Amino acid sequence: MDTKAASGMLTAPTRHAGRTGMPAQQCTGILAIDPSASVERTRLRLPEDLPLKNWCRIGDQILAVSDSSSWWIGDWLVFGQQKYRDRYQQAMKETLLDYQTLRNYAWVARKFIPQRRRENLTFQHHMEVASLPEDQQDHWLDFAVRLKWSKNELRRQIKASTAPDEPPAGRTEISLSLRMEEARIKRWEEAAQRSSKSLTEWISAVLDSAA
């Protein structure tokens, strides 16, 4: 990995925009943000007369940078481990992210060389299949691209493919139909994601706890 290039992409918005208010497009290089926006370390500045289409485009660009940064961190860690073995662990301890998060980034980056990474899928999609054999990784990622699966849908499909046809002895399979506000469902999905569970698993755990 080109460490100078990676450093420039990661630090340019903070290093320049925080001091000068320079438009983001002049700071970020390859992954540019609409020039009507300017970035600081803890703030995004948008003009009051920003058109809706520009606002939508800026959102897409920010999400692209956010997802790309996971790959950048992973590649940065892999490079450091290979080149600076004696100082690698200390450098990890001095970052703002926790140790396990950094290990996850590096693990996924090692599992997927750049040529195998799908640009139209998120880093989290790749994390979902990273523990599978390489041919299975490609199989599921190809499906996710073709059918436009979310990360959660990809996880559900993988789990469903490995589930037994019949429920285990002593267990009964039931189906529930709930009418809920979309905002509430989204909160539940986010809570399930934080617990590394599917929505069904999370609901079951909450109900068990309440019982």
Rank of each mutant, 00 (worst) to 15 (best):
residue 129 V to Y: 01
residue 169 A to V: 08
residue 199 L to R: 13
residue 187 R to L: 14
residue 179 R to N: 13
residue 168 P to T: 05
residue 159 K to V: 02
residue 150 S to M: 03
residue 168 P to K: 09
residue 150 S to D: 03
residue 134 E to K: 02
residue 170 G to K: 12
residue 126 H to P: 05
residue 127 M to S: 14
residue 137 Q to W: 06
residue 129 V to N: 03
residue 205 A to T: 12
residue 205 A to M: 11
residue 144 A to P: 02
residue 144 A to H: 00
residue 125 H to A: 05
residue 146 R to V: 14
residue 203 I to A: 15
residue 142 D to A: 15
residue 198 S to H: 12
residue 155 R to H: 06
residue 119 E to D: 10
residue 142 D to R: 15
residue 123 F to R: 05
residue 140 W to G: 06
residue 108 V to P: 03
residue 125 H to V: 04
residue 133 P to Q: 06
residue 159 K to F: 04
residue 126 H to E: 12
residue 108 V to I: 13
residue 190 E to S: 14
residue 147 L to S: 11
residue 147 L to G: 00
residue 176 L to M: 09
residue 109 A to D: 04
residue 171 R to V: 12
residue 205 A to K: 13
residue 118 R to S: 12
residue 147 L to A: 08
residue 141 L to P: 02
residue 186 K to I: 07
residue 199 L to I: 14
residue 181 E to K: 10
residue 168 P to D: 10
residue 177 S to H: 06
residue 179 R to M: 08
residue 117 R to S: 04
residue 210 A to L: 10
residue 178 L to N: 08
residue 133 P to Y: 04
residue 159 K to P: 04
residue 169 A to S: 11
residue 137 Q to R: 12
residue 163 A to R: 12
residue 156 R to P: 00
residue 207 L to W: 07
residue 139 H to F: 13
residue 190 E to V: 06
residue 206 V to D: 05
residue 164 P to E: 00
residue 127 M to R: 15
residue 205 A to D: 15
residue 177 S to W: 04
residue 207 L to T: 09
residue 178 L to A: 06
residue 120 N to V: 09
residue 160 A to Y: 00
residue 121 L to K: 04
residue 110 R to Q: 06
residue 133 P to T: 01
residue 124 Q to E: 13
residue 179 R to W: 04
residue 147 L to E: 14
residue 115 Q to S: 08
residue 173 E to A: 07
residue 186 K to E: 15
residue 179 R to A: 11
residue 128 E to V: 11
residue 183 A to L: 00
residue 167 P to F: 05
residue 192 A to P: 12
residue 132 L to A: 04
residue 133 P to D: 03
residue 160 A to C: 01
residue 149 W to K: 05
